[in-house]
């Protein structure tokens, strides 16, 4: 459980003073299918990266290095947009919760 602030501690007027603090809120648990990235097939066109609603495709030195499952919601846009001749991303069902 995160600790909730009292009224004296919150910044004046509902201001959120920590820019980009949403990264503390993980959305990976929403996923029912995970994209799996095959580095061998990938041509690093970065289309998956530019179409990801979460910015969950990780890129380093022009290369797709993987997927950040802390945030990936499993929408599958990346797998769809990966060019037909490449198909470096496959969607794999997450294990069902009891």
């Amino acid at each position: 459980m995160r600790k909730l602030q009292g009224w004296k501690d919150i910044p004046t007027g509902t201001a959120i003073v920590k820019a980009g603090s949403s990264v503390e809120y993980l959305t990976g648990g929403w996923r029912d299918a995970r994209p799996e990235h095959d580095k061998g097939k990938c041509t690093n066109c970065l289309l998956c990266w530019v179409y990801c609603p979460e910015g969950a495709i990780t890129v380093k030195d022009d290369q797709v290095t993987g997927i950040n499952y802390d945030y990936c919601k499993g929408c599958g846009i990346c797998a769809t947009e990966c060019p037909p001749k490449v198909k470096a991303i496959t969607m794999v069902e997450e294990p069902k919760l009891m």
């Binding site: 949403s22 990264v23 959305t27 990266w49 530019v50 609603p53 910015g55 499993g74 929408c75 846009i77």
Partner: peptide, 30 residues
């Protein structure tokens, strides 16, 4: 060029609660 753009800092960060597959989230990032 996407490779150049990918070097830029993201200003719309993950952890937002838009639906999975939200087109608006894609456009916000872009």
């Amino acid at each position: 060029n996407l490779k150049e753009i990918a070097k830029k800092e993201e200003l719309f960060m993950p952890g937002h609660r838009l639906c999975a597959g939200c087109g608006t989230a894609v456009l916000m990032r872009q």
